[in-house]
């Protein structure tokens, strides 16, 4: 059952950190996050000063730049009691990278340590903080799910995304073969080592096609952009959709336009 919030209980002040990639390239993910959270009774705010978590800088070795962005993140989100992030890799930055980037700046290190526990990846927020798995979603399509490396081994989401997906009405969920293998994106890896990245991505795309799914879901749009770019270039009509965009859809929205509807749901 959907959990509805009791009236007159003030919710914690919740901020959405949409991430720079979603802000510019995948705004639908941010809109879906807002819609879903509101449907579940969470009044989410979007602090407009937010920019980028600095993951790309950190992963490429630019720690001073990362520290500047960490400072900016603290300034932007410091007043919020919880910060929800529709990206497993960006959600992990405050806990994993900021302490290293803040080395030599005790003030920043303290601020980061204080803030990091309040930064939560979106699916974990749903299952652990709101305690919901059935979010009232309807998605009558064949869907497979790629667990991104950060969601597996950094944010350690475990089976949370699967529990959420399996509770979606109308969904035909199929397991992705060799799902725990990296898609080859790796941020600047895909630019510095395009041949290897392309080979990894090609194998991932092949596994997606093996499932016969019309939709590939994940909790990081960066990886979806990588895999989707390959599928699209090769002319395969598989849609890449952030998990939250699936969870946000209801019967009122109907099926995703242009995507085959599964038999059982018709």
């Amino acid at each position: 059952m959907m959990r509805s919030m009791p009236p007159n209980v003030p919710r914690p002040r919740t901020a959405l950190f949409v991430t720079c990639l979603n802000d510019t390239l995948f705004p639908g993910t941010g809109r879906a996050a807002v819609a879903l959270l509101r449907r579940l009774g969470v009044e989410v705010d979007f602090p407009p000063g937010q920019s980028c978590c600095g993951q790309m800088h950190f992963n490429t070795g630019y720690r001073k730049r990362t520290a500047e962005l960490a400072r900016h993140f603290v300034d932007t989100f410091g007043d919020y009691e919880e910060i929800v992030v529709p990206s497993a890799s960006c959600a992990g930055m405050p806990a994993e990278a900021y302490p290293l980037a803040a080395a030599g700046d005790p003030g920043l290190a303290r601020a980061v340590a204080e803030l990091a526990p309040r930064v939560v990846e979106l699916t974990e927020y749903l299952t652990d903080r709101l305690g919901v798995e059935e979010v009232g979603a309807y998605f009558p399509h064949r869907v497979t799910y790629h667990p991104t490396c950060h969601s597996l081994r950094a944010t350690r989401l475990g089976d949370r995304p699967y529990r959420l997906l399996r509770a979606v009405r109308g969904i035909d969920f199929v397991e992705l073969p060799a799902q725990e293998e990296c898609c080859g994106f790796g941020g600047t890896f895909s630019v510095k080592n395009p041949a290897v990245s392309g080979a990894m991505n090609g194998d991932k795309a092949r596994h997606v096609l093996e499932t016969g799914a019309s939709v590939l879901a994940a909790v990081d749009n960066s990886c979806l952009m990588n895999i989707g770019g390959r599928l699209d270039r090769d002319g395969h009509p598989v849609r890449t959709v952030h998990l939250v965009e699936i969870l946000a859809r209801t019967e009122q929205d109907g099926p995703l336009p242009g995507v085959p509807v599964v038999e059982e749901a018709r």
Binding site: T24, L25, G198, G229
Partner: peptide
Amino acid sequence: GWTDSRTLPAIPKESFRGWW
């Protein structure tokens, strides 16, 4: 190298912050 094996995502007309 990126575009050798992938297309780029369509850049949307409105950013998330624009929509907000």
